[in-house]
């Protein structure tokens, strides 16, 4: 187990390092931050001074080296906008809002997706199954930015039931969380349905019935626990969807999370912040997958890492 975890941490470090190169280069290739910082009336001397202050006059390799050294020291650089606050502080300030939103959305996805998948599987071919599959099809096809705007239009603008955007009360969660979870609800429903249909034919389900267990115990205990194993595999990518979805959703709903921070930083060509946010998201993504692997071993006793 321990060797498994340390191996995964090693892999995590390599992935992060590769990601940092990509982020660093992409940031440098897509525009000129100095031009954004300076007014139209600045002189070439002003320009040279700013470039020197930000280290942008040095060779790329050197810039990257300095960046990595700082990252290892925990310094992710300062924003080049506004009061030039440290990127790390910006992330920590914004992250709780994102985590709340993704957490609520993930919870909703499971609370709705799992029962929907189970019902679809146990009513295979019947109306309930067709309905659940239709929901799943729609959920996986609708683009989230469009869904977000449509929900906002109906529930906030037309019906005045919910706030259009912003953060603060429980009501503010409803629309962004609904938007964010729809895709995952659809995915969870389909996964649970597919594995449940298979598992309901298994011999151990027959044996559970032979024992005289009630149908609800057979389905919700014996069959469901086994059906959740493949769902768990996708947890990491669901989480990733939520993080990447956050950039769109947080922007649409003016949610003060790291998704919107990323969007703002990109608009402003705020390199240090872009780098910090993307690195942070990468770490989050890899960390989520590690947690999934550990959960795996907990749900499925056949998987025990590092010993045999």
């Amino acid at each position: 187990m321990l060797s498994f975890i340390s191996k995964r941490f090693g892999e995590m470090a390599v992935a992060l390092l590769l990601m940092s190169v990509v982020v660093f280069l992409l940031g440098r290739m897509t525009g000129d931050p100095v031009a954004l910082l300076l007014s139209d009336y600045s002189t070439p001397q002003d320009r040279a001074r700013v470039e020197q202050e930000l280290g942008l006059d040095r060779p790329l390799v050197e810039q990257y080296g300095a960046f990595i050294v700082n990252v290892l020291k925990g310094e992710l650089g300062n924003s080049i906008m506004g009061d030039q606050s440290p990127a790390a502080d910006l992330i920590l300030e914004r992250f709780p809002a994102s985590l709340q939103l993704a957490g609520v959305a993930l919870l909703i996805s499971f609370l709705i997706g799992v029962p929907l998948g189970v019902v679809a599987a146990t009513h295979r071919g019947k109306t309930l199954d067709v309905a659940a599959r239709l929901v799943a099809l729609i959920g996986q096809s609708v683009p989230i930015f469009w869904l977000g705007i449509m929900l906002m239009y109906f529930f906030s603008v037309r019906l005045h039931l919910l706030p259009t955007s912003g953060y603060g009360t429980a009501a503010h969660f409803v629309l962004p969380a609904a938007t964010m979870s729809l895709f995952t609800i659809a995915a969870v429903t389909r996964l649970v349905r597919a594995s449940m249909v298979d598992i309901l034919n298994a011999e151990y389900i027959k044996l559970a019935r032979i024992k005289g267990l009630s149908e609800s115990v057979v389905i919700w205990k014996h069959a469901l626990r086994n059906s959740l194993i493949p769902v768990l595999t996708f947890m990491g990518s669901f989480f990733a969807n939520m993080i990447t979805g956050a950039v769109v959703i947080e922007t649409v709903f003016a949610w003060p999370g790291i998704g919107r921070l990323a969007y703002e930083a990109i608009l402003n060509r705020d390199f240090p912040v872009i780098q910090a946010v993307v690195l942070f998201m990468t770490a989050l993504f890899i960390g989520a997958n590690l947690v999934v692997d550990l959960l795996y071993a907990w749900v499925d006793p056949r998987i025990r890492y590092g010993r045999r």
Binding site: Y204, I210, G212, H222, R302
Partner: peptide, 21 residues
Amino acid sequence: VRGSEISMILQDPMTSLNPVF
């Protein structure tokens, strides 16, 4: 009745037990 009065042993021992319990 099932289990307590009439019970049954299935053919395939490899798949008759639930792997997660």
